[in-house]
Lab assay of single mutants.
Amino acid sequence: MLYVKVKTEDGEELVLEVEGMTEDEIREELAKAGFKIEEIEVYEVEP
């Protein structure tokens, strides 16, 4: 499983499960949803 931890400019932290997306695609999708991203951390969790 691939997850991203996202910190927004307003200090909110989100953890999202993503599969088959690049970091650029993740940033693009979050921007479309109205999030202003300060930091993204991508990590993989073994089942």
Rank of each mutant, 00 (worst) to 15 (best):
D24L: 10
R27L: 10
V15D: 03
E41M: 13
I37H: 06
P47F: 09
V6S: 00
V6Q: 00
I40A: 03
M21Y: 10
D10K: 08
E46Q: 12
V6T: 02
Y3G: 02
R27M: 08
T22S: 09
D10S: 12
K5S: 04
L16Q: 01
L30F: 09
L2P: 01
V6H: 01
G34R: 02
K7E: 03
Y43T: 06
E44G: 09
E46R: 10
L30T: 01
L16F: 14
T22H: 04
E19S: 14
A31S: 10
G20H: 06
K5P: 01
E25L: 05
A33N: 05
E46H: 13
E23S: 08
E17R: 15
E38N: 11
A31P: 02
K5N: 02
E44H: 13
E39I: 15
E9Y: 11
E29G: 07
V4N: 00
E23Y: 14
M21A: 05
F35Y: 13
G11I: 01
K32T: 05
L30W: 05
D24A: 13
K5A: 03
E9W: 13
P47D: 07
K5T: 05
I26V: 06
E17V: 15
E13W: 15
V18F: 15
V4I: 08
T8V: 04
V15E: 05
L14N: 01
E41Y: 15
V6W: 08
I26A: 04
K36D: 05
E38G: 08
L14E: 02
A33E: 04
E9P: 11
K32V: 04
Y3T: 06
A31T: 10
A33V: 06
E29L: 15
K7N: 04
V6K: 00
G20L: 05
I40G: 01
E13M: 12
E23G: 05
V18W: 07
E25F: 04
I26C: 04
E38V: 15
E23W: 14
L2I: 11
E41I: 14
E13Y: 15
E13Q: 07
K32M: 07
K5V: 10
R27S: 03
L14F: 15
I40C: 04
Y43L: 08
E29Q: 11
A33L: 14
K5H: 07
V4K: 00
V42Y: 10
E29M: 15
M21Q: 05
V18S: 02
L2V: 08
I37A: 08
D10N: 11
I26H: 00
K32S: 06
F35R: 01
T22L: 05
L2G: 05
E39A: 13
K32A: 09
E19P: 06
E19N: 12
E44W: 15
V42H: 04
E29I: 15
I40M: 08
E46P: 13
V6Y: 09
K36H: 06
E17N: 08
R27K: 09
K36R: 10
V4G: 00
V42D: 02
Y3R: 14
K36T: 06
I26L: 07
R27H: 03
R27T: 03
T22N: 07
V4R: 00
E13V: 14
M21N: 05
R27V: 07
G11S: 02
G34H: 03
L2N: 05
I40T: 02
K5Y: 12
R27N: 02
E38I: 15
Y43P: 02
A33F: 14
V45Y: 11
E13D: 06
K7C: 10
M21W: 08
D10F: 09
E41N: 08
A33R: 15
K7F: 11
E46S: 10
E17F: 15
G11N: 03
A31D: 04
G20I: 05
Y3S: 04
I26Q: 01
E17Q: 14
Y43N: 03
E29V: 15
I40E: 01
Y43Q: 03
V4Q: 00
Y43A: 04
L2F: 14
M1E: 02
E44N: 11
E29K: 12
